[in-house]
């Protein structure tokens, strides 16, 4: 059975996920530079009042990004 791949923009607030990979080179480069790597554990910390952008928290600190950018980040849920 195959599930559609889960991406960061689809996470519910407060859920944790592990980053699997990136679908867009520009987003990948920027996220890597900001310390978000494949294997990083991220939590969806906040969604802006107007639904976009979002804030994720990692062990390195918090990052804001747009849903448009989060769409290119593959994740899997963890408990």
């Amino acid at each position: 059975m195959k599930f559609p791949p889960l991406t960061l923009d689809l996470l519910q607030k407060g859920t944790k996920a592990s980053v699997q990979g990136f679908e867009d080179d520009v987003v990948e480069e920027k996220m890597l530079e900001m310390g978000c790597l494949p294997g990083s554990i991220v939590e969806l910390e906040k969604i802006a009042p107007l639904g976009d952008p979002i804030i994720i928290s990692m062990s390195e600190g918090n990052l804001a990004l747009r849903k448009d950018e989060a769409r290119h980040i593959r994740v899997i849920l963890i408990n």
Partner: peptide, 8 residues
């Protein structure tokens, strides 16, 4: 793009 650090 809007990938931005949220400092404390």
């Amino acid at each position: 793009s809007f990938i931005m650090d949220m400092p404390v």
